[in-house]
Design a protein around this nucleic acid. Structure first.
Length: 429
RNA sequence: GUCCCCAUCGUCUAGCCAGGUCUAGGACAAGGGCUUUUCAAGCCCUCGACACCGGUUCAAAUCCGGUUGGGGACGCCA
């Protein structure tokens, strides 16, 4: 049976690249009906930290991944590493020096057949003897990794490209211990726009940052999987189930991918668009509370109507807070360019006042009558409807873009509409 | 410096393993148009790539070699 593992070290947040490594391992395991384990590589006593571990695990769950069995902590397996270290010492395959235990790299060609890259050969002459047990008694990464993968019966090691050079250090260890090395699959790294490894200077790199920025787990997971793998048949959107069904490690590309936040945002918008309205509202409510745009008491029905208006045009959840700020507060901000273009224009203020008067004297205030009122005013003034609509949108929402104006006015309500038209007319006269 | 990996539109990729159906397909972005209200929505169109050189072959994006370019690794970090 296939058994794979994801082996994070709890020394930082879950990086986008690591998340993808975890995802590919998970997809592979689920596709093969095998097992996906999580092993915590916490042998660096000074840098490992429980908060990071919790964050990493939360991120995995958030993306929709689950794992089999209990978490394995390397820090709790010191005896096992020592046992095997002693075995290698006794066999003469290792030696002690300066308080540490070194593995003797045998003089031979080391060949591996990578599932993604095919055969790779190394000359052991260029590899130094490797520390197995540090002088603090803890195992090094390379040694613990080999022992655990063998001990946990891991069949496939799917990991980042940056580990290729660790492979020739590890394979001889398996052999010296009499273990059969697992199959290896090295997936390419994720890069920033400048071609270097994706890091902080390129922007957000951790899963939790994306979650906080309003990205949906389904969208992020879909997007991450697309870097290096594709569902085929020109498809891009794929649910978790569809991915499990069609995932094949052999179809993972060999080339590094540049993380394109713009496409990621686009994809997020697609998922928002397809999401059930009530679900979307549920996701947005906590965000609005956090931004103090609503309190505990709010009109759920009205909010739902608002979200429905904006659902098709937002790419991330906070987009709504920005685009529909006018709905939640009266001292909303004005887009400067829009003010110059539509409000500080000759005659704009007069138009706003006239529109206000028309609304005031109209009994009805539904989308249809709002539209009729607006258009007939434009007709009478012998100007295009746009000449009324643009200033009105700016006056009411502070934005040049948004949902349809008439719907926007209806949801805003008569009272606020009148006041804002009046205020803007005076302010930008 | 040494070793290793990689090379299709600006970006993500399909095609490559089993050479012809590829004047190279899709998506994001960009540019243009339509939607007689904006747009970051929708629809349509356009732009845009097989890094280079050589070899094998009747035929190469696909196979081989080299060059160049990019990336990674060389820790008692993981």
């Amino acid at each position: 049976m296939v058994r794979v593992r994801f082996a994070p070290s709890p020394t930082g947040f879950l990086h986008v690249g690591s998340a993808r490594t975890a995802l590919f391992n998970w997809l592979f395991a689920r596709h093969e009906k095998g097992e996906f384990l999580v092993r915590v590589e916490d042998t660096d006593q000074t840098r490992s930290n429980k908060e990071f571990l919790d964050e990493i695990l939360d991120s995995l769950k958030w993306l929709g991944m689950d794992w089999d069995g209990e978490l394995v902590f390397q820090s709790k397996r010191l005896d096992i590493y020592k046992k095997y270290a002693k075995e290698l010492l006794d066999k003469g395959a290792a030696y002690e020096s300066e308080g540490a235990v070194f593995f003797k790299i045998p003089d031979e060609k080391i060949k591996i057949t990578d599932l993604i890259r095919g055969p790779i050969e190394f000359d052991s002459k260029v590899i130094k003897d490797q520390v197995m047990i540090k002088s603090d008694g803890f195992p090094t990464y390379n040694f613990a990794c080999v022992i655990d993968d063998a001990d946990m019966s891991i069949t496939h090691v799917i990991r980042g490209d940056d580990h290729i050079s660790n492979t020739p250090k590890q394979v001889p260890m398996y052999k010296a211990l009499g273990f059969k090395p697992p199959q290896f699959a090295h997936i390419p790294l994720i890069m920033g726009a400048d071609g270097g490894r994706l890091s902080k200077r390129h922007g957000a790199t951790s899963l939790s940052e994306y979650r906080d920025m309003g990205y949906l787990p389904d969208a992020l997971r879909n997007f991450i999987a697309l870097m290096g793998w594709s569902p085929g048949e020109n498809k891009e959107m794929a649910s978790l189930d569809e991915m499990v069904k069609s995932f094949d490690i052999k179809n993972v590309v060999k080339t590094a991918a540049v993380f394109d936040i713009n496409k990621c945002a686009w994809m997020n918008g697609q998922y928002i668009k397809e999401m059930e309205l009530s679900k979307l509202v549920d996701l947005i409510i906590p965000l609005l509370k956090e931004k103090k745009l609503i309190t505990e008491e709010f009109d759920q029905k009205k909010l739902t109507e608002l979200v429905a208006l904006y659902k098709e045009r937002i790419r991330t959840l906070p987009d709504l807070c920005n685009l529909a700020e006018f709905f939640f507060k009266d001292d909303f901000t004005f887009d400067e360019k829009g003010v110059n273009k539509h409000l500080k224009k000759e005659g704009a203020s007069g138009i706003l006042l006239k529109l206000k008067e028309r609304f005031e004297s109209s009994d009805k205030f539904d989308v249809k009558s709002i539209e009729d009122t607006t258009r007939s005013l434009a007709d009478e003034l012998k100007i295009k409807a746009a000449a009324v609509i643009h200033p009105a949108r700016m006056a009411l929402t502070g934005r040049t873009v948004g949902a349809g104006l008439f719907e926007t006015i209806e949801i805003l309500g008569k009272e606020k509409t009148l006041k804002r038209l009046q205020d803007a007319a005076e302010k930008f006269k």
